[in-house]
Simulated scan of single mutants.
Amino acid sequence: MKKLIVSLACALCAASGLRAQNYAFINSESVFKSLDDYNAAIEQLDNLAAQYRKNVEQAFAGLDEMYENYQAQKAYLSETNRNRREDEIVTREREINKYQQDVLGPEGDLMKKRVELIKPIQDKVFAVIDKYAKDNALGMIIDRTNNQTLLYYAPELDKTEEIINLLKQ
């Protein structure tokens, strides 16, 4: 009788263990790069970032020129004019740094534009992944992109192409 109970308990544990191991892998980078909307958004963001960086670099070049002119003329300026010019240089540097933060900072224009362009695409991808997981009774989908703790995965569990196909429907 004890053997029957122990065997039954082991069978139940094994059955519940099998249910807990329903998972799949995807490569989210491949999924996103397969979408034309995503690639267009990334290109637009890259162009915007390049323009912002160019504006910042030009502003700092102008500041350098302003400082070099001041250094060249410093010996000939009165103390009042020197102080005024130094204040102008410091003020200009603060303005440039503020502009740089306003456009390239973590809460700047570029990040806001990124959220505006990428978030709807991410939402769409995550919704498809969620639906795929529910339809296939998966308890977990693991992103293998840049996952440094993933030591091994079975390629037959990689469902990246299936997700891409669902997104293109």
Rank of each mutant, 00 (worst) to 15 (best):
111 M>E: 11
160 T>W: 12
52 Y>A: 07
116 E>A: 03
83 N>P: 06
157 L>F: 07
164 I>W: 11
48 L>V: 12
140 M>F: 00
20 A>T: 00
134 K>D: 01
111 M>R: 13
83 N>S: 10
27 N>G: 00
118 I>P: 07
51 Q>E: 15
23 Y>D: 10
159 K>L: 01
22 N>H: 14
118 I>H: 14
6 V>E: 09
61 A>L: 14
63 L>M: 05
153 Y>N: 08
61 A>T: 13
153 Y>F: 11
58 Q>R: 08
102 D>M: 10
1 M>N: 06
141 I>G: 05
38 Y>V: 09
46 D>P: 05
7 S>A: 15
40 A>C: 08
138 L>G: 06
78 S>D: 13
84 R>Q: 04
14 A>L: 15
77 L>Y: 02
44 Q>R: 14
37 D>P: 02
129 I>V: 04
108 G>A: 03
107 E>D: 11
108 G>T: 02
145 T>L: 09
128 V>T: 04
109 D>K: 13
53 R>W: 10
127 A>M: 10
85 R>K: 14
122 Q>T: 12
123 D>S: 00
135 D>G: 01
156 E>M: 02
130 D>C: 04
78 S>N: 12
94 R>D: 06
166 L>I: 02
62 G>I: 10
63 L>K: 02
97 N>W: 07
51 Q>M: 10
47 N>A: 12
139 G>D: 03
67 Y>K: 05
32 F>Q: 05
168 K>F: 06
18 L>V: 07
110 L>D: 02
38 Y>E: 13
9 A>Q: 06
109 D>C: 05
10 C>L: 15
61 A>Y: 08
124 K>H: 12
84 R>G: 00
165 N>M: 05
143 D>P: 02
35 L>N: 01
157 L>M: 11
111 M>I: 13
126 F>L: 14
114 R>F: 06
144 R>C: 03
9 A>T: 08
97 N>C: 06
44 Q>T: 14
41 A>K: 04
60 F>W: 13
16 S>R: 04
23 Y>N: 14
105 G>Q: 00
88 E>K: 12
77 L>W: 01
168 K>V: 03
80 T>D: 10
